[in-house]
Amino acid sequence: MDTFALIVTIGVALGFTYTNGFHDSANAIATSVSTRALTPRAALAMAAVMNLAGAFLGSGIAKTVSEGLIETPHGTKGMWILFAGLVGAIVWNLVTWYFGLPSSSSHALFGGLVGAALAGGIGVIWSGVVEKIVIPMFLSPLVGLLVGYLVMCAIMWMFRKSNPHKAKRGFRIAQTVSAAGMALGHGLQDAQKTMGIVVMALVIADVENPGDPIPVWVKISCAVMLSLGTYAGGWRIMRTLGRKIIELDPPQGFAAETTGAGIMFTTAFMFHAPISTTHVITSAIMGVGATKRVNAVRWGVAKNIILGWFITMPAAAIVAAVSFWIVNLAFL
């Protein structure tokens, strides 16, 4: 096995985790910053710490990514297939970050893996892609929209006789907890996705055997890079989620974050399904906003975000396929 290919692939995987941190972690804290429940610096620091903690809460999603989406490739060619898949995901992350579009890093990664596998002649486990990726991609936003709406309705009913100013102050404090839950859920979901890629690389290199526990150094490396990326911040995406979809107040922010965190924990522990943080929190914000009045949500911005969701996997797949063909000419 080419050690150079292994080192490069692991390095690029950690680079993807870094971009995931500043790209997707903005989703976890955007509502708290926009409602002024937390300052941006405090929110980023808190999110970095909670992402780090979340990475150690489980390994089911890592197993899904490493074993359930594409057949494990072999040899140096297999390593470069992983490399190309990661390049596809990173490029799409950077493009969507530049334009402030909260697309899914998770689906960029999955699209990249599928595109590189097809280009490299490796089998795709389509049943796993449909069951673990496509179905949750459609269901999680619908659940987020509905649950966000219902949670906000429940809050409005429970606090209907409260003093509005006192209630907002209370929810501003409560948002510290809900934002921490979102960041913890993001760490649980997204750090494991990169762990799965690194484990696959180690299996290809015969350093690890399939089914072995995830090495501690892999967990620490992925968690630290995700946290560093988080602290680097994602201001463009934060602005889109926090203010462009709807102007949020603290109760709405709390409802959206609580909804998002609940869905992420449920899917991670019960189904080992790697869902998108972006999809869940964006749809929860829309559901919460719709309780105000339907036209309070800026559906034009929401439409552009949803369009980005559908483009992400094919776009990342195309970039990954092109990357593999270039690597194939250069190294294979």
Results as ranks from 00 to 15, higher is better:
1 M>P: 04
1 M>A: 09
3 T>N: 13
4 F>C: 09
5 A>L: 08
8 V>F: 14
13 A>M: 10
14 L>V: 15
19 T>M: 11
22 F>R: 04
29 I>A: 02
33 V>K: 03
38 L>K: 05
42 A>Y: 13
45 A>F: 14
50 M>E: 05
55 A>F: 10
55 A>E: 04
59 S>V: 14
60 G>M: 09
67 E>V: 01
67 E>R: 01
72 T>D: 02
73 P>V: 12
74 H>Q: 15
80 W>A: 00
84 A>V: 02
85 G>H: 01
89 A>V: 09
89 A>L: 05
96 T>G: 06
97 W>C: 11
102 P>Q: 08
104 S>H: 07
105 S>Y: 04
106 S>G: 02
108 A>N: 10
108 A>Q: 06
109 L>R: 03
110 F>A: 00
111 G>N: 01
116 A>S: 13
118 L>Q: 07
121 G>F: 06
136 P>S: 08
136 P>N: 08
139 L>F: 15
139 L>N: 08
151 V>R: 00
152 M>Y: 09
154 A>R: 11
156 M>T: 11
160 R>T: 06
163 N>G: 05
164 P>L: 14
166 K>Y: 14
167 A>F: 04
172 R>Y: 05
175 Q>H: 12
177 V>P: 07
177 V>T: 14
178 S>P: 10
181 G>R: 00
181 G>H: 05
182 M>A: 10
187 G>W: 01
187 G>M: 07
192 Q>I: 07
193 K>P: 02
193 K>L: 09
194 T>N: 04
195 M>L: 12
198 V>F: 01
201 A>T: 03
202 L>S: 07
209 N>P: 01
212 D>I: 04
212 D>R: 02
216 V>Y: 12
217 W>E: 04
220 I>V: 15
222 C>H: 06
222 C>V: 12
223 A>E: 07
225 M>H: 12
226 L>N: 03
229 G>M: 03
233 G>C: 12
238 M>L: 14
238 M>W: 06
241 L>T: 08
243 R>W: 09
250 P>G: 10
250 P>Y: 03
253 G>N: 07
253 G>M: 11
257 E>D: 14
261 A>H: 11
263 I>T: 03
266 T>W: 08
270 M>D: 12
271 F>N: 08
272 H>W: 12
276 S>E: 04
280 V>G: 06
281 I>H: 01
283 S>E: 04
283 S>K: 00
286 M>K: 03
290 A>W: 15
292 K>G: 02
292 K>T: 13
294 V>W: 15
294 V>S: 11
294 V>C: 09
294 V>D: 08
297 V>C: 10
298 R>F: 12
304 N>F: 10
304 N>G: 13
306 I>L: 13
307 L>N: 14
311 I>V: 15
311 I>N: 01
314 P>A: 07
317 A>D: 02
323 S>A: 15
324 F>P: 03
326 I>W: 13
328 N>Q: 13
331 F>A: 14
